[in-house]
Nucleic acid binder design. Structure first.
Lengths: 221, 221
DNA sequence: CATTAACCTGAACTCTTTCTGAAAATCTGG
DNA sequence: CCAGATTTTCAGAAAGAGTTCAGGTTAATG
């Protein structure tokens, strides 16, 4: 799950980014409205966090530009405490949720997960596919037979991507995009390596290869 | 499905071409308006992607020349962001769709498929003929009895060509043109070889030979 | 009915993509 | 700074897709 954090305050941005990453997201950070608009349109984010107070423009304009282009990912806006006007305007401009500063990172993460679930039409905080269930809170994989296995961060992110849309073919490039942000670009073989690890967990049949196209999660077992 | 990409920026062109090829198209790329006009008139493309900003002429002129000749394939134009004038002029000049830069390749592919479907009078993203159905997203072949078989890239492209017009005779030369771009020119026996493979999938009766003329997909089974 | 060109067929070959196991590098908590 | 866990890289093996080839069949033609 890749997301975009638009935050002017460098310190806050870094702190948030690292916590979000710990929570299983890959995060791109930008400090300017200009860059935010471009990134939002070009990259494939699953959600955005937008601070309204930016040095080079109003955050609401960023949001409006996203909404008038094809950038349709859900957006959570950060407002100064008690600034009701911002909140109302933000929701009008197409925001999906808001959070007043100061806030606890836990709450931000919870709300982010919520708007992402909503935008995918999910209700629960877990992803089910075939015999498996992915627990978003505990980052672990449950099998039908009651067994359970905890996942490393990368294992979890990759599996969530695949299980989020069983039967759909994800190319290696797409998976790279969801797993890593703009600053990271490991060897593409990393996907193969992790697919291999996941297959050891869910069985080789469950993740199918479509040579030249990509990988898919097979929920028919 | 062969298509023509007219794009000045070499880097963008290469990236797009490789992704389009991954999506099952065979792509010719040109950087100049002059060559674009000639190729469009001479070759048999199923669609065109036209960047309006070209070094040696206006993309709209290319489009007009195509339209005034027999080049009637659907065309998607790429415009600079928010350039409404270009967009309007483009549609006036006969474009079938437009996309503002920057864009995601997925969207370009989706729109391309859409204008191609429209130009063939199709609505769904699958081709049906006889007992068979070709799923464009998953590159697989479904049979009436519920079975399903995924196809390799070349198998898929060839079958799509034949199934796209059941009963119509395609010469080997035509099939070669649809399967390969100007830079590739394998032995013509390759068509025979693939026809054989397809017959193993759909049954020998389903693809008929018209000796000296070509092959056709027989949807009466 | 002999000739010829077109087509079919199976296998071999090449090239690319993916798999695999292990080692190296990096990160993290103590 | 160390120890363990995790992430990343590497290089060779394996598998798969694309292509070619040689020889066998078939259909058209005079």
């Amino acid at each position: 799950m890749r997301l975009l954090l638009v935050e002017d305050d460098r310190l806050l941005a870094e702190g948030l980014a690292s916590q979000l990453e710990k929570a299983g997201f890959s995060v791109d950070v930008t400090r300017t409205a200009k860059e935010a608009v471009i990134l939002g349109e070009q990259e494939d984010y699953k959600a955005g966090v937008l601070d309204l107070g930016l040095p080079d423009g109003n955050g609401l304009d960023v949001l409006r530009k996203w909404r008038s282009s094809k950038a349709i990912f859900p957006v959570l806006i950060l407002t100064a405490r008690g600034d009701w006007q911002d909140k109302v305007n933000g929701l009008k401009a197409g925001a999906d949720d808001y959070l007043a500063k100061p806030f606890q990172t836990e709450e931000l993460i919870a709300r982010l997960n919520a708007i992402m679930r909503r935008s995918e039409g999910r209700v629960q905080s877990s992803v089910k596919a075939g015999r498996f269930e992915l627990d978003e809170n505990r980052q672990c994989l449950k099998v039908d037979d009651g067994t359970e296995r905890s996942l490393t961060g990368t294992e979890f992110r990759l599996l969530r991507c695949l299980m989020g849309r069983p039967g759909h073919i994800f190319s290696k490039e797409q998976l790279m995009e969801q797993l890593y942000n703009l600053n990271e670009s490991p060897n593409e073989n990393i996907i193969e390596a992790y697919i291999r690890r996941l297959r050891k967990l869910v069985g080789p049949e469950t993740i199918a290869t479509r040579r030249g196209q990509g990988y898919l999660f097979n929920d028919a077992v």
